[in-house]
Design a protein around this nucleic acid. Structure first.
Lengths: 157, 157
DNA sequence: GTGTGTGCAAAGATTTTGCAGCGGT
DNA sequence: ACCGCTGCAAAATCTTTGCACACAC
């Protein structure tokens, strides 16, 4: 039986005693479906398609709640915050710091193995007395398109 | 011959044709010395001890410049940005998301080896056509002190 | 002397908060 | 019916920007 990520989130919230309002469910649907690592503003816009009265504050509150229970990852690119609600397990990201695009990486070797990273996190946590430690691996640079336009801009100067 | 990080930064800026104003040098000194991963505000306060007329905007501009040339790492903890100017090479950080403390980690195995992480970054960059890709490995959790006070707060409820 | 960097103050962007009323359980 | 959640608008942050002047080169 296949359980979608959306259903998984619904169950988690029900189990933890959170109320399932239409606004919340809409936010869950966006975060569960969107592979593009949306900003708060983007989630807001998509939720408003179905629920036009929803406020930005509600989006913030809902995402904060999901972050708090570990179902959504927050990534920072420059000044903007981006969210990954599709896979809460540790996986590497490839980030373009110019255009802000984020790609979920599947790479070979130990770095691509969630178990390996989690083991390292557990070890570090034990050694330092930390709790609930999650590993986060990011590769930050400039995508092909942004690199090309940066070069073009240079020539113009 | 021992070259301090501060002198290293001075040379880099001179070589790249940046002007060495007293304000800039003060910012460099703070970033080169401070092991505590300061915020912009903290850099500001420390610079103002010696140069009381320095403005916040100048701190922002200087740090942006240093980020741009890869001599300072930016880390996000919650809403606040923190800076590491002591070692621009990729090294793992242990972050407490409650109190915002950041520890530079020296760990065993491939994850603690800058060369290994850099090699992975180079590989990813080649595979995806990205440029100037830097790896960033973080372990995010809750330090012993914050964990203890979170438990205490729970009991109070 | 030239042009970059600085300081100030204002604007812009992002996120949080207070509170009255609605609605999920 | 209760209490958590929502929506609105205002407030609090945080960061950037425009411009005139200063000073590093």
């Amino acid at each position: 039986m296949v359980t979608t990520r959306y259903e998984q989130l619904l169950q988690r919230l029900r189990g933890d005693g959170f109320r399932l309002t239409p606004q919340r469910m809409a936010v869950l649907r966006v975060l569960a479906d969107d592979t593009g690592h949306p900003t708060v503003e983007q989630v807001y816009e998509r939720v408003r398609v179905d629920y036009p009265t929803t406020s930005l504050a509600t989006i913030y509150k809902t995402i904060d709640m999901l972050k708090g229970i570990g179902e959504v990852l927050e990534l920072s690119v420059g000044e903007s915050h981006r969210y990954d609600g599709r896979d809460p397990r540790p996986h590497p990201h490839l980030i373009c710091e110019d255009c802000g695009s984020i790609i979920d990486l599947a790479i070979d070797g130990p770095l691509g193995d969630p178990a390996f990273l989690s083991a390292a996190a557990t070890e570090v946590a034990a050694a330092r007395g930390y709790h609930d430690v999650m590993p986060q691996l990011e590769f930050r640079g400039r995508c092909a398109a942004c690199h090309a336009s940066a070069l073009a801009a240079d020539r113009t100067l």
